[in-house]
């Protein structure tokens, strides 16, 4: 089931999606109308504030894309796990592309990817994620790292949604948050099939999305 689900070639589709969303963000940004959440203006937020919030979401998204790439490069995942998750690397890159466009349009600083595994590990530690790239002892560690990273990504979006004022930025972040939540569920599904849980299909499906309010780590 999971193997079949992973049998797809998302690269072209995801790259096109990334281009479309990033393009839309760039095009829309100069004339971005304040969201109906003009209430946010009442708390002192502004377009500048949106840029800072989007930068924070981007910094986590950049880290997530880097971590996925390195986890795949470390070769600790089995074939079926790789097939189940392989599309997520391109999807994380698509998030980065769209967020970079939105951040640039908002006039804020575009965050670069980590320059090394050491730097990425410092970022993980800063976000209180315990697993480290280069030290993964097996699929359990790798999947645990990916779950923690997805939760941190979701949390960055959740926090941003409280302060963003621009409609396009709010929708972009909400769409990314929901996608990362899907990643979290699918990685969790893979994780709970491993020891010590070793759940089979129906129980693993039931354990993959244990929270009704998915707000991540923040």
């Amino acid at each position: 089931m999971t193997a079949a689900a992973g049998d797809r070639s998302p690269t072209r589709r995801e790259m096109l999606a990334a281009g479309a969303v990033a393009g839309a963000a760039a095009l829309a940004a100069p004339s971005l109308a304040p969201a109906g959440a003009a209430a946010a203006s009442a708390d002192g937020s502004s377009a500048t504030g949106d840029g800072a919030l989007l930068s924070r979401v981007l910094s986590m998204s950049v880290l997530a894309a880097y971590v996925y790439q390195q986890v795949f490069a470390e070769g600790v995942l089995t074939g079926s796990e790789r097939r189940a998750l392989e599309g997520f690397v391109e999807q994380e890159r698509a998030h980065v592309a769209a967020l970079r466009a939105a951040v640039a349009a908002a006039g804020a600083t575009v965050v670069a990817p980590p320059s090394s595994i050491h730097v990425a590990n410092q970022h993980l530690a800063h976000r209180q994620i315990s697993e480290r790239l280069g030290q993964l002892r097996g699929a359990g560690d790798a999947l645990g790292l990916l779950i923690a990273v997805e939760r941190s990504s979701i949390g960055s979006c959740y926090v941003a949604l409280r302060g963003l004022t621009l409609s396009t930025a709010i929708v972009l972040v909400a769409r990314i948050m929901a996608d990362d939540a899907q990643h979290e569920a699918l990685v969790t599904y893979q994780r709970v099939t491993l020891p010590p849980h070793a759940l089979k299909f129906p129980a693993a499906l039931a354990a993959a999305a244990p929270s009704a309010l998915v707000s991540g780590s923040h």
Binding site: A5, A17, L161, V173, D179, A212, V214
Partner: peptide, 27 residues
């Protein structure tokens, strides 16, 4: 946003149960 993310998880897992690609798009 937190409710939306939960519903997004549900639909991904429902797709998985139907042997469909569970996360067909980055957005």
């Amino acid at each position: 946003g937190a409710i939306l993310a939960s519903d997004a998880q549900h639909i991904a897992l429902l797709r998985l149960g139907q042997d469909q690609p569970p996360v067909p798009s980055a957005f």
